[in-house]
Amino acid sequence: MSLAQSPPTGASVRNARLVSALQRYGVLIALGLLILFGTLRYENFLSPYNITTVLSYNSMFGLIALGMAFVIITGGIDLSVGSVAAFASVVAALLSPHGLWVALIGAVGAAAVLGLINGAIIAYLKILPFITTLAMLLAARGLALILAGNQSVSADYDHGFTTLGQGSISGVPYIAILLFVAFAIGAVVLRYTRFGRRVLAIGGNEEASRLMGLPVERTLLTVYTLSGALAGLAGVILASQFGAGQPTEGLGWELTAIAAVVVGGTLLTGGMGSIGSTLVGVLLLGVIFNVLNFENGRGTISLTVYWQSVIRGAFLLLVVILQNRLTRARAEP
């Protein structure tokens, strides 16, 4: 005979609500507190120049994180996005003499093809996403170096290509506007469309989704193609902003994107996630490094760029541990 389960107490209900609120709003609270700290400590922290600099620099990471969010929600991973972005930056620089739109469409299209290959191998050949995208990481990097001749490729300045990365409207960079528009579309797609519901269902239980008749393979193909295309768009911004295609750039970008997605509350196991929280995660990481730069300027600390990788890795590990603890606490009666 099984014993009846005792009803939850008031304290357990309050704890469950607190854990749920931390999972949902913790990253937003952390961002708000960090901005408040920066505002009180640094004179020009909220200056238009600093704000636009943070948004411009992190727009590339944000677009990659957007694609990564969809991938991780399905329970997958895409390690190739940094190399794909570098490849796209070279393609965009080579096409830049033909104008912005030719370079944009050509580079994003080429990157989408690499994402399509990832998706086809994962969905139809049933190769693990980790292995597939790791192989694509190497392949895309090699393609970028071959196309560029193992050197940076200067972009054309005479046909409007650099306008995307360096231009602005009323002081707001075009790429910042592009970032927010992309995330707004992504949030609507995930929450209100049939495709978004399929992505969540596959991440929750892929086999059950298949038994329900959902087009699992087609959805995975689309998700990885989208991830490749957004990485390609980040590559176009890279070339347009700095005036050159960079075949050796993008190292570690995939970890930055994963960190932003996980910080935003998306489970690495899939099935649950938020596009809006991913954007907040991107901004939180960006503001953290912006604060560190201010501290460097004050002489309080002296961190080289290499320490950013150490901090990023430690921060990602800390967030994953915290997320795991919160998930367990929420599951406990």
Rank of each mutant, 00 (worst) to 15 (best):
M1L: 13
S2F: 13
S6R: 12
A21E: 03
Q23H: 07
V27M: 12
L31M: 07
I35G: 00
I35W: 02
L36P: 00
G38L: 01
E43H: 05
P48I: 00
I51T: 10
T52P: 00
L55G: 05
S59T: 15
M60H: 02
A65G: 10
G75F: 05
G76W: 08
V81G: 09
F87V: 08
A93E: 08
L94A: 05
L95N: 01
P97F: 03
V102K: 04
A110K: 07
L116C: 14
I117Q: 02
I122P: 04
L128C: 01
F130Y: 13
A135P: 02
A140D: 08
R141Q: 14
L143I: 15
L143E: 08
I146E: 14
I146P: 02
A148I: 07
Q151I: 11
Q151R: 15
Y157P: 12
G160I: 09
V172A: 00
I175K: 03
A184L: 15
V188P: 00
R191T: 15
Y192T: 12
Y192E: 12
T193H: 08
L200M: 15
L200N: 10
I202N: 07
G203A: 09
E207H: 10
M212T: 14
P215T: 10
V216M: 11
E217H: 10
S227G: 13
G232I: 08
L233K: 08
L233P: 09
Q241T: 13
G243E: 02
P247D: 10
G250F: 06
W253H: 13
L255I: 12
I258D: 07
V262W: 05
G265K: 13
T269P: 01
T269D: 03
M272F: 15
M272R: 15
G273H: 10
S274A: 11
G276D: 06
L284C: 04
L285T: 03
F294I: 00
G299W: 01
T300M: 04
I301K: 02
S302L: 09
S309I: 06
A314C: 05
L318Q: 04
